[in-house]
Simulated assay, not measured.
Amino acid sequence: MPGAIDRFAARIWFAACSPTVSGGVILPFRHLSAVPVIPAVAGNGLVIFGFWLFRVGARRFHTVFGSWLAA
């Protein structure tokens, strides 16, 4: 239906907020770990995953369908 809001895109954006926030919360505390590389990689990985989900939601919102790998 033209002009209809794609609610699935909004759900993807909402789901993208969790890993992005979680990664942002982990990153400032990497100095508390004995091996600071592990929290840095985990935090940055979650942030990148969240940004990827934002991109998937934007593609869905603009009706650019395709595989999730294309995003």
Rank of each mutant, 00 (worst) to 15 (best):
R7Q: 15
R7E: 14
R7D: 14
R7A: 12
R7P: 08
R7N: 12
F8A: 03
F8Y: 09
F8V: 10
A9W: 05
A9H: 01
A10K: 06
A10H: 12
A10S: 07
A10R: 06
R11M: 13
R11G: 13
R11Q: 11
I12R: 01
I12N: 04
W13Q: 03
W13N: 01
F14W: 11
F14A: 14
F14S: 05
A15E: 13
A16K: 02
C17P: 01
C17K: 14
C17R: 13
C17I: 15
C17V: 15
C17Q: 13
C17H: 10
S18A: 15
S18L: 14
S18N: 12
P19K: 05
P19F: 08
P19A: 06
P19M: 08
T20C: 07
T20N: 05
T20K: 09
V21T: 10
V21W: 11
V21N: 10
V21S: 11
V21R: 08
S22L: 15
S22D: 06
G23E: 03
G23W: 05
G23L: 02
G23A: 03
G24R: 09
G24Q: 03
V25G: 00
V25P: 00
V25Y: 09
V25Q: 00
V25A: 06
V25E: 05
I26N: 02
L27M: 05
L27C: 07
L27R: 04
P28C: 04
P28V: 01
P28K: 04
P28F: 03
P28I: 03
F29L: 09
F29M: 07
F29D: 01
R30C: 12
R30H: 13
R30I: 08
H31R: 06
H31F: 13
L32W: 10
L32S: 07
L32K: 00
L32Q: 06
S33F: 14
S33R: 02
A34D: 11
A34R: 04
A34C: 10
V35L: 11
V35E: 11
V35I: 10
V35M: 04
V35S: 11
V37F: 15
V37R: 08
V37G: 10
I38Y: 08
I38K: 02
P39N: 08
P39T: 09
A40M: 10
A40Y: 11
V41H: 02
V41Q: 05
V41R: 05
A42M: 12
G43D: 05
G43A: 01
G43W: 02
N44M: 13
N44R: 06
G45V: 10
G45W: 10
G45Y: 08
G45N: 04
G45M: 08
L46P: 02
L46R: 02
L46C: 12
L46Q: 06
V47Y: 05
V47N: 05
V47P: 02
V47F: 07
F49N: 01
F49I: 00
F49L: 11
F49Y: 13
G50T: 03
G50P: 00
G50C: 06
G50S: 04
F51C: 15
W52H: 11
W52C: 13
W52A: 15
W52I: 11
W52Q: 06
L53W: 00
L53Q: 05
F54A: 06
F54V: 09
F54Q: 01
F54L: 11
